[in-house]
Amino acid sequence: MIEVRGLTKRYGPTTAVDGLTFEVAPGTVTGFLGPNGSGKSTTMRMIIGLDRPDAGQARIGGRGYRELGWPLRRVGSLLDARSFQPGRSGRAHLAALAASNRLPARRVDEVLDIVGLTQAAGRRAGKYSLGMAQRLGIATALLGDPEVLILDEPVNGLDPEGIRWLRSLLRSLAAEGRTVFISSHLIAEMALTATDLIVIGQGRLLAQTTVAELSAQSTSLEEAFLALTSGVTDYESHAREHGHHYLGSAS
């Protein structure tokens, strides 16, 4: 269970996350949806204590992330595909993180096997393809066998087979009663993976809904999503504001 209450983050004059409040329930895959730059990654970084909110709080099972006794055994996270050092092997990367939360060494082999990196485990992680890097990131998230998973754009870089594999993995983890929270800006992918949805735009909550509910609002899920986020897509309003300048200089 993830609870976010009034979460706010400002960078100078810009408010990246603006009083965000929502809950992510266990037992289902919850999608975190919003256009690029809507504050999804910032929100996730605040949930796992990497960034400090200017206001509000995020709790996992009733506790702040920094208060967790064994963070990796509670929460598995993937915030960026490349969250490892290129000179170190995939196995050594996982072994180091496993040691920090006193996880048994065999768990490293288990997660390597789950993500299909056993063969490549001894190679320097800098040589991995984007898809393999993503699998190493997923292995890192699974290391502590956590009850909560927070994954930022987990399908990035995966091939179609990898995407299907991840989808069924996430669903089975949710079926075991875990909380699975994944972000994406791709509505079509989210429709196939997630059941519940949290939609944000410009750092504000637009809807806490389900895939079924949202797709019933319009002719298609995509249409419903675009209608929901139409007012908050940054680059569109940017283009509108500056469009006449380009035309002006061309004439």
Binding site: Y65, P71, L72, S83, F84, P86, L97, S100
Partner: peptide, 15 residues
């Protein structure tokens, strides 16, 4: 750790 992004994994494991 900062240049590679490992620091995020480190601080997620040990806040």
């Amino acid at each position: 750790e900062y240049s590679s992004g490992l620091i995020r994994s480190t601080f997620a494991a040990a806040p």
